[in-house]
Simulated assay, not measured.
Amino acid sequence: MARTARGAENLEWAREVLAQAQTVEQLRQAQAVVLPLDYGLSMEQTARVIGRSVPWTCRLRNRFLAGEIVGDGQRQSRGGRRRQNMSAEQERELLAPFLERASTGGILVVGQVKAEIEARLGRSMALSSVYNLLHRHGWRKLAPDKRHPQSDPLAQQEWKKNSPKTSPKPARSGPAKARSS
């Protein structure tokens, strides 16, 4: 025999939400509360009526009974930085001197940034996490250019044209002889 449905104290509120539902999910959530209480449906029957699985129907019911209506904008969506080491402001504060030096022509040494972060946190940190932190704040690793910025392509062409020709190396005649021991 199935348990009796809980949430009778929220039944009037569920009926109001059922009448004023703006989305299909809100309607289903209110039905997940009203159907078992008013009509004595089991969770399996309720799930079949609202077109969701039994676990999802239980989740909708529990969220409603906890005071949360689906789609009302109150619940934060997943995403963001749940396991952050520092807030974004603390990261900016820590990186400010390094990025300032790098913007004026200095070199940003990631090992120094890593040491500073580890000193602040009091524990070690992966190098990839330091690179991710730098990337979050707009830093990118610069690679050398293909050519020197002060090079002169015309002068290079002139040098190639006027440089002395070197004689080719003489070709070997025949196969190399093996030494005998």
Rank of each mutant, 00 (worst) to 15 (best):
I107M: 13
Q20V: 06
G67P: 07
P168E: 14
G51H: 05
F64D: 01
N85D: 14
G80R: 03
N62A: 08
S87Y: 05
V24C: 04
V113C: 01
L108Y: 04
E16S: 15
E91I: 04
R75Y: 00
A66E: 12
A88M: 12
E25S: 10
Q157V: 13
S180G: 08
L18C: 04
A2Y: 03
V130N: 04
A171P: 10
A143E: 15
S87A: 12
G174P: 05
W56G: 00
L41T: 10
S129F: 03
T104L: 08
G122M: 06
L18P: 02
V113T: 03
P164N: 11
G79E: 09
N132M: 11
E9M: 09
R140C: 06
S42V: 02
E91L: 03
Q112Y: 10
R82I: 06
V130I: 12
L142S: 14
V17K: 05
L108M: 11
R140S: 14
P170R: 15
V17I: 15
E93R: 12
K160G: 03
G80Y: 04
E12M: 12
R120N: 04
P153F: 08
P149Q: 00
I117F: 09
W139G: 05
R81C: 06
V110S: 04
L99G: 02
Y39R: 13
L18N: 04
V24F: 04
R147H: 04
L121T: 05
E9V: 13
G138V: 01
E9P: 01
R179A: 15
P170I: 07
Q112I: 05
R81V: 09
Y131C: 02
R92Y: 00
V110P: 06
I107T: 14
T4V: 15
V49P: 00
E44C: 05
E116N: 03
S87L: 13
Q20T: 14
E68A: 10
A178Y: 02
A32C: 01
K160F: 08
R140G: 07
R92W: 03
Q90H: 13
I50K: 02
G79R: 07
P153M: 09
G105A: 07
S129R: 10
S124I: 06
F64V: 00
A115H: 05
Q26T: 05
L154F: 12
P36F: 00
A5K: 00
G105F: 03
T57W: 00
E44G: 14
I107C: 06
L37Y: 02
S180L: 15
G73N: 07
L154E: 11
